[in-house]
Simulated scan of single mutants.
Amino acid sequence: MNFKDLTNKTLISDHDISWEDLGAGVKRKIMAYDNNLMLVKVAFEKDAIGTIHNHPHLQMSYVAKGSFEVSMGDDKKILNEGDVFFAPSNVFHGVVCLEDGILIDVFNPHREDFLK
């Protein structure tokens, strides 16, 4: 499925979207987006790293599976299935996957850099 095909879709099946391999044990699926909002599923193998970074977008992430050590600014905490983290605009954050896991990331506005 082409990313443009996802714009403003309202009913989306997981099996219709292919994983994008980001390397180093991380892959993602852009599930849906419009100009204001984006939902992304990110799968991590054990010990894979979501490198410390920041961006102007608001981000909320739900731990759908597994366990992650999450760094948010100067804080670190282990989050497990069912937990959530919130990354305010421009705050440095990242994760280390402690066991195979999946994060559901929501961004406002959408991440144009993910669509390139």
Rank of each mutant, 00 (worst) to 15 (best):
M1K: 14
M1E: 08
M1C: 05
N2P: 01
K4P: 04
D5T: 09
D5W: 08
D5S: 15
K9N: 10
K9I: 12
K9E: 14
L11C: 13
L11A: 14
I12Y: 07
I12C: 01
S13H: 13
I17E: 09
S18H: 13
S18W: 01
S18D: 15
S18P: 12
W19C: 09
E20P: 05
E20W: 02
D21G: 01
G23N: 10
A24G: 02
G25M: 01
V26F: 02
V26G: 00
K27D: 04
K27L: 05
M31D: 00
M31F: 09
M31A: 04
Y33T: 09
N35P: 05
N35Q: 11
L37I: 12
L37C: 10
L37V: 04
L37S: 07
M38K: 02
M38S: 04
L39H: 01
L39T: 13
L39I: 13
V40P: 01
V40L: 09
K41N: 10
V42I: 15
A43L: 05
K46W: 08
K46R: 08
A48G: 06
I49N: 07
G50M: 02
G50A: 08
G50P: 01
G50S: 09
I52F: 11
H53I: 02
N54D: 11
H55K: 03
H55R: 00
P56W: 00
P56V: 00
H57A: 07
H57I: 05
L58M: 13
L58S: 01
L58V: 12
Q59W: 04
Q59H: 12
M60L: 15
M60S: 15
M60K: 07
S61T: 12
Y62Q: 00
S67T: 13
S67G: 01
S67V: 10
F68D: 03
F68C: 02
F68L: 11
F68M: 07
E69K: 15
S71C: 03
M72A: 08
M72W: 01
M72K: 02
M72H: 04
D74L: 04
D74H: 00
D75S: 09
K76F: 03
K77S: 13
L79P: 04
N80F: 02
N80L: 07
N80I: 07
E81R: 06
G82N: 08
D83Y: 04
V84M: 14
F85I: 14
F85V: 05
P88V: 12
P88F: 13
N90G: 09
F92K: 14
V95E: 09
V95P: 02
C97P: 03
L98S: 06
E99T: 14
G101L: 06
G101S: 09
G101N: 01
G101C: 05
I102L: 07
I102W: 02
V106F: 10
V106H: 00
N108A: 15
N108Q: 10
N108H: 13
P109Y: 08
R111D: 07
E112R: 07
F114L: 14
K116A: 00
